[in-house]
């Protein structure tokens, strides 16, 4: 009995190891976000929390953070530093979630429920590159 039990445990661990990682980028519609009423803001916050909690419980969530608006860009071999918030663009990456799932299809289904979509936002899934040695 106990042998079977530990075998099962090992099996699920192996299954977990086979999970692939995905980066979910949240592109927010800045204009819409600035127009939200306090009530909508509160509802959106609660939805994000509920969503993250659900993903945490199902074992799909590795981490997730919101991003500040200011950004610094460094480019070229001379490493030219450009400072500032790039507010001229309509969309901005407002945050990310690092997720794990057995395949892309599952992540797409999960991402569909992301509250980012409620107010004009777009989510983008980027599978993390992983190759076995």
């Amino acid at each position: 009995m106990s042998k079977n039990g530990s075998a099962n445990c090992l099996y699920s661990e192996l299954k977990l190891l086979k999970m692939k990682k995905y980066l979910l980028l949240l592109h927010e519609d800045i204009e819409k976000m600035q127009q939200l009423s306090p009530k909508e803001m509160e509802e959106l916050g609660n939805s994000h929390m509920a969503w993250a909690e659900k993903l945490g419980k199902s074992g799909h969530l590795i981490s997730g953070e919101g991003l500040e608006e200011n950004s610094v860009q460094i480019s070229g071999k001379d490493s030219i530093v450009k400072d500032g918030t790039f507010l001229e663009s309509k969309e901005m990456i407002g945050g990310y979630y690092l997720l794990q799932a057995k395949d892309l299809k599952t992540v797409i289904e999960l991402a569909k429920g992301c509250p980012c979509h409620l107010y004009g936002g777009t989510t983008e899934i980027r599978p993390i590159m992983e190759y076995e040695e």
Partner: peptide
Amino acid sequence: IQNSFYKSLKSWKPNKV
């Protein structure tokens, strides 16, 4: 105030409110 709400939205998490 709008910004502070927006920041709370991004930085508060289920176990970090």
